[in-house]
């Protein structure tokens, strides 16, 4: 079998990684650094014509942090993220526990559940926008027919309702992901443990508390942290459904960053704002790593 001449010298293993690593450095590393630099520059639409982007120190940061909108956007981001994660997780876990029983068509139903997560956000966002329309939306239509609310809720046009509405839509998008991951975690719990709990006379609540929950904990923390890291930067849904309105009721750090850069062409300030977003993500990630270390060191 070894009649062939010696094979050409093997390429270094790093040559296999180099193309992907170069790509990741160019499309993640460079943007992060460039963004950091831009946030200290007066980088506006004029920069593209004159090439001049003078350094202005921390002025971009002081401008955005002192604007009236910032505290509102930060609060909205925290509320949107926290409520989305709670809703997605609780409903996702309930569905995962439900699908854990074996019943006819269970598998088919479980995989069809993934559809909301796979659809382009533009398609589902547009549909929700239409469904939540105050006058002609199907949601108010149903509420009216059930005589629950005669006048109709201004889901997307009311300043106190809009944030709740986009959060609910985001929960809807996130449920399938949570269900899938938590279902996978549940499948990994050995069935003998459930049988032992049953022999000990444990009811469903006690079994959940003493068997399911402790063993699911690692998966739970993964789901929650991933959820937080992904949710904090959600931009598409809000942009599509409310555009940050009405009266800035659904502005978040992410939408603010988009508007500063791509509507006001204040790229320096937009960069500063998006760095606030990076810091928020880092806080979640560090919290996660610390929680993880504590869990493994016990």
């Amino acid at each position: 079998m070894r009649s062939r001449s010696r094979p050409a010298p093997d390429p270094s293993p790093w040559l296999f990684i180099a193309p992907a690593a170069t790509y990741l450095l160019l499309f993640f590393g460079y943007p992060v650094v460039k963004n950091l630099v831009m946030s200290f520059q007066q980088y506006t639409i004029r920069t593209f014509y004159t090439g001049a982007a003078p350094f202005v120190g921390l002025r971009n940061y002081s401008t955005i942090l002192s604007s009236d909108l910032f505290s509102k956007a930060l609060l909205n981001t925290v509320l949107f993220t926290a409520a989305s994660i709670c809703g997605q997780f609780v409903i996702g876990l309930a569905l995962a526990l439900f699908f854990q029983r074996s019943f006819p068509l269970g598998r088919v139903l479980r995989s069809l559940l993934l559809l909301p997560w796979l659809l382009p956000l533009v398609a589902s966002g547009t549909t929700w926008r239409w469904m939540l329309d105050t006058d002609s939306g199907v949601v108010n239509d149903v509420l009216r027919h059930l005589h629950l609310l005669p006048s109709g809720v201004p889901w997307l046009t009311g300043t106190s309702q809009a944030l709740v509405s986009v959060t609910l839509i985001n929960i809807w998008v996130g449920i399938p992901f949570n269900t899938t991951i938590l279902y996978g975690g549940l499948q990994n719990i050995p069935t003998q443990l459930y049988e032992a709990a049953k022999l000990d006379g444990a009811g469903p609540v006690a079994t959940f508390r003493h068997v399911t929950w402790p063993l699911l904990r690692p998966v739970v923390s993964v789901v929650l942290v991933l959820g937080a890291v992904y949710t904090v930067k959600v931009l598409d849904i809000i942009l599509l459904v409310t555009g940050g309105g009405p009266a800035n009721a659904t502005e978040t750090i992410a939408t603010q960053s988009y508007e500063l850069s791509f509507q006001q062409f204040e790229f320096g300030r937009g960069a500063a704002m998006s760095n606030v977003l990076v810091v928020l993500s880092l806080v979640f990630a560090v919290g996660y790593l610390r929680a993880n270390r504590r869990a493994t060191s016990v």
Binding site: P31, V32, L226, V229, S261, G270, A271, V278, S281
Partner: peptide, 11 residues
């Protein structure tokens, strides 16, 4: 995974 798309788009 933690880098927001808006950071990438901006740069």
């Amino acid at each position: 995974q933690m880098v927001p798309s808006i950071v990438v788009a901006n740069a």
